[in-house]
């Protein structure tokens, strides 16, 4: 080994970075070459000086505690951050709840106007039976009943004679529903009275018939050709439905 190579490797040798073969070569060279041995000695002296100089700085005694406090805070913040998704879940579910509430309100507002009307219809029916004011014009003749409404309303109802089908006409009267005067036709089936309310619909579209049972009464209502029909009676459902079918056709 030449001195030049030796000097290049000397530090790596002292730092313990060389393999065994190189180490042996260097040790051999150091025994044979005085100038290189002196270099080696100087290097060693420096290392010893560094190691003996207590150059190592020790941290202040309170640093570990301060560090722990800092990390604890950071860890709390981290935990808070990791909860963030839950917060989003909560926000999302709150939004769903609000949407559901709005939908519910809109939906029930519609159905509640219908429900209100239903109550009016039932009240009107009950009143017509109670107060002995079933008919203003008592006649089984449709040609008597229909003209009777002339001049009393801004529409002319279709009055059918359904006596042959088992629903004799008893007469008609003026009633007041949905904030307007309406036609009330009264039919009978055995001992059961049927009120048929007719008035012009505020809706553009037709509505299929809907049967509802309320307080022991069957209520059927639908909208067709711009007219709203409500039928109410204590008649059984199938007979009343048959009646509604006859009115519709």
């Amino acid at each position: 080994m030449r001195c030049e190579e030796m000097q290049k490797l000397l530090e790596a040798y002292l730092d313990g970075e060389l393999d065994l073969m190189r180490n042996l070569e260097i040790e051999k060279h150091l025994q044979e070459c005085a100038p290189c041995a002196l270099l080696h000695k100087n290097q060693q002296a420096l290392r010893q000086a560094i190691h003996s100089a207590a150059l190592y700085f020790s941290p202040p005694a309170e640093l570990p505690n301060r560090l722990r406090a800092t990390l604890r805070q950071a860890s709390k913040a981290e935990t808070r951050r990791s909860f963030l998704p839950w917060r989003w879940v909560m926000v999302a579910s709150a939004m769903v709840l609000v949407a559901a509430l709005v939908w519910f309100l809109v939906a029930t507002r519609k159905s509640s106007t219908e429900e209100l009307l239903m109550q009016e219809v039932i009240a009107s029916h009950v009143r017509s039976l109670m107060a002995d004011h079933l008919t203003d014009v008592a006649s089984s003749d449709q040609h008597t009943v229909k003209p009777w409404f002339n001049g009393k309303l801004d529409f002319s109802p279709n009055v059918k004679d359904l006596a042959e089908q088992g629903f004799p006409l008893l007469g008609g009267r003026l009633d007041y529903l949905a904030n307007r005067p309406v036609v009330a036709l009264v039919y009978q089936r055995q001992k059961h009275r049927i009120n048929l309310f007719i008035w012009p619909s505020t809706k553009e579209t037709d509505e299929a018939e809907k049967i509802t049972a309320r307080q022991g009464y069957q209520v059927i209502h639908w909208t067709t050709s711009g007219m709203t029909y409500w039928i109410i009676s204590d008649l059984n459902e199938s007979d009343l439905y048959e009646f509604s079918r006859l009115v519709r056709t």
Partner: peptide
């Protein structure tokens, strides 16, 4: 050059820890 360093071993003798720290 390393070879121009004073080869004397006085390095060991005179090592002043304070100076070494400052030099580093």
């Amino acid at each position: 050059e390393s070879t121009t360093l004073n080869p004397e071993a006085r390095l060991l003798a005179i090592v002043d820890h304070q100076r070494l720290r400052q030099a580093l």
